[in-house]
């Protein structure tokens, strides 16, 4: 009996290690073979010639899986590919849960590109590249509600959905706790839940990153409209790196500058957010 169990455990282990041997490797894009346009001599990567990126793949349109369930797609994915092309390295995406994503920097991956907002608080524990996209807080409502909301104060008395522990959540909680407005806030794990609630009439409005809203509206043009976008306080997304990795920071900033000069970001925004 015992022997059989051991034999079973052993064969399972062997299967596992076999799978380890045959695991597919990320194929190198042809472009990466080209020489780097950025000086990478001082940069030390986890794996030579590969930029390993931590990403929570499940936040469309920034990062998502294609229908085959394995190909990462999205604004950040395209940015990461362009970035590594400029750095002359290949790219390896590591899908990671949002909780604990920053703990993996320098351990499981070189940097995080996952719609990370640059904040003063985060700057104390990690390095950020220059911003690669601007983001605002936006209010999305059903098409027939258009024109009724022109500022956050107009949300008074409505039911609002936000994604839990995002800037939108914090902002709305501030508005409510300071008494600026009275509103019911439904905080959800996933942003999709918020839009489903809006569609089903469970809530009246969704407060969300403008970039996400743009992406969502572009693929659902008839259902919702963006009622309002607060441009007074832009948020910026950056690449997060380990605090001591200044060499990588310099290289990435140089690459971002090159991409800006080439007009990559306008094209990428237009492609993903349809503007």
């Amino acid at each position: 009996m015992m022997k059989k169990i051991f034999a079973l455990a052993l064969s399972l282990m062997m299967l596992l290690s076999f799978a380890a041997c045959t695991a597919k490797t990320e194929e190198a894009p042809a472009a990466a073979a080209a020489a780097s346009s950025v000086d990478m001599s001082a940069v030390k990567l986890m794996q030579d010639g590969v930029l390993t990126i931590g990403m929570e793949i499940g936040y469309p349109p920034f990062e998502d899986f294609a229908e085959d369930g394995t190909t990462p797609i999205g604004y950040d994915v395209d940015f990461a590919k362009a970035l590594s092309e400029k750095l002359g390295v290949t790219v390896n995406f590591v899908n990671t849960a949002w909780d604990g994503i920053f703990q993996g920097i320098g351990v499981n991956y070189d940097c995080v590109i996952s719609a990370v907002t640059i904040t003063e608080e985060r700057k104390e524990s990690m390095l950020f590249s220059d911003a690669y996209i601007n983001n605002y807080q936006a209010v999305v409502v059903k098409a027939d509600y258009a024109g009724k909301v022109e500022s956050f104060l107009d949300l008074d008395g409505l039911a609002i959905a936000v994604q839990k522990e995002t800037t939108s959540d914090i902002l709305m909680s501030d508005y409510v706790s300071t008494g600026s407005i009275t509103a019911t806030i439904s905080a959800n794990e996933k942003i999709t839940t918020c839009f489903t609630q809006l569609e089903n009439g469970e809530v009246d409005a969704v407060v969300v990153d403008s970039t996400v809203a743009d992406g969502y509206l572009a693929s659902n043009p008839d259902k919702f409209v963006k009622a309002f976008q607060d441009e007074s306080e832009p948020e910026q997304f950056g690449v997060a790196m380990a605090l001591d990795n200044t060499a990588l920071q310099a290289a990435i900033n140089e690459a971002i500058a090159l991409l800006t000069a080439e007009g990559f970001f306008e094209a990428n925004v237009a492609y993903w957010f349809g503007k």
């Binding site: 369930g69 899908n95 849960a97």
Partner: peptide, 17 residues
């Protein structure tokens, strides 16, 4: 929570996207 994709996680991911 530690980056692995089981049945539930995959179904949630599909639901999200």
């Amino acid at each position: 929570a530690i980056s692995l994709m089981d049945i539930t996680t995959i179904s949630k991911t599909i639901m999200t996207s």
